[in-house]
Design a protein around this nucleic acid. Structure first.
Lengths: 215, 215
DNA sequence: GGTATGTGTCACCGGTCGGTTACTTTGTCA
DNA sequence: TGACAAAGTAACCGACCGGTGACACATACC
């Protein structure tokens, strides 16, 4: 007869901002701990300790939540990181060495970010707000670093610099993503730091060879 | 009271071999059409028009079925394909050109096999009988082609050939997998055949530069 | 005949998925 | 005080998931 009295839950503090924060953080934790395949409404809500209805109410669904997460993280090396922090010193280098430095720092930057590796793998499967956001940032940074590498210097005319970039970036992305789940590639132990030094050396050698042979 | 008479189904031909064949083929179709994420017991069984119980009975589960599928396909370029078919002509080439040819044919071989690209992406997520089978074949072919490339010739002593292989293979794998779901990478239109020719040219250039600079 | 065996079908199980509805509780403001 | 919006909860929905048990039926073999 009497009205139902569910009132079992501890009743959080009714703070929308804090709740949204909890949900966004939970995305990062699930992503880091269990991988992108576990980034689901029920799982994230449980992780956050928040009722999943609020994901729909505040973010319009999981996509919106993931988008909010995307705008909130440091998923990509920025210009300073790619150049090594000292912009002047970077610009003092010749074209070839600029590219060597930027490539090396790019690889280190990706490997330093497990979440980015996770998202890179995610992108192989599907597009979503997170991978789109990541891509837009990468594209932006990519354009900037390309401009910075060649700024003030003449690029060899018959060099397909875009193809070279694609090959270098593709390799780094592939090996970084692969490192998550496999311990070797082409016989190289990816779990050994020495392997990555060898790869750095070879990438530098490739760049110097290709650009050095220019006339 | 009377015994139930379900007897509604049309009763297939009671041919175990044929049924297994249907299931294995269904895996390939689902994989090609919907991707590895849809390779599930219910989906494959429905695709084959076979009751899913038989997947468990005949293959012990989805893993066994996938393993059977793995032993049944042409997922990787073999030695003939990598060398261009004419082994003698291949061996008549110098080391550098052997590597150029093998790399080019490797890339073409991967791009020619959509299922292989799908499996490569799958491997970023998890190991299973299919990805293991693919890996073992690749590793085997990889060893053989490496041996063939250098057979009878001297490899420059201070060249980290394994690292070079990893970089070349990593690039090709990455771009091929990426082609499935994205139309550009690093500003290059992956859906344009001209892009792939540019990449072939650049890969050849890299190889010639790196190996040509040897003393 | 009879019976065991292999082949195939159907119906169900517990669990999870994304998503929605209906509700209570809290705080604010008139 | 009372109305009302915002914050949060619980319960439910249909669909699908992997997996199993019980049964019908055809055949082969004794």
């Amino acid at each position: 007869m009497a009205t139902a009295k569910p009132q079992s839950a501890p009743e959080r503090q009714r703070d929308r901002e804090a709740t949204m924060r909890l949900l966004i953080d939970a995305v990062g934790r699930v992503l880091a701990r269990q991988g992108f395949r576990e980034v689901k409404v029920n799982v994230v809500a449980r992780e956050a300790g928040i009722n999943k209805v609020l994901i729909y109410r505040y973010f319009g669904g999981l996509d919106g939540l993931v988008a909010a997460f995307a705008h909130n993280g440091d998923f990509w090396p920025d210009l300073d990181e790619l150049t090594g922090g000292d912009r002047e010193a970077f610009l003092a280098l010749p074209l070839v060495e600029r590219l060597v430095v930027a490539t090396r720092n790019y690889m280190r930057g990706i490997r330093r970010r497990p979440l980015t590796q996770e998202i890179l793998a995610w992108r192989f499967l599907e597009h979503n707000a997170l991978t789109e956001a990541l891509d837009s940032v990468r594209q932006s940074v990519g354009m900037q670093i390309m401009a910075l590498v060649r700024s003030g210097l003449a690029v060899p005319p018959n060099l397909d610099i875009a193809a070279l970039y694609a090959i270098l970036g593709g390799t780094i992305n592939h090996l970084s993503v692969r490192e998550r789940t496999e311990e070797t590639f082409a016989g190289l132990p990816l779990d050994d730091e020495a392997t990555w030094e060898r790869l750095e050396v070879m990438l530098a050698r490739i760049i110097r060879s290709v650009l050095g042979n220019e006339d």
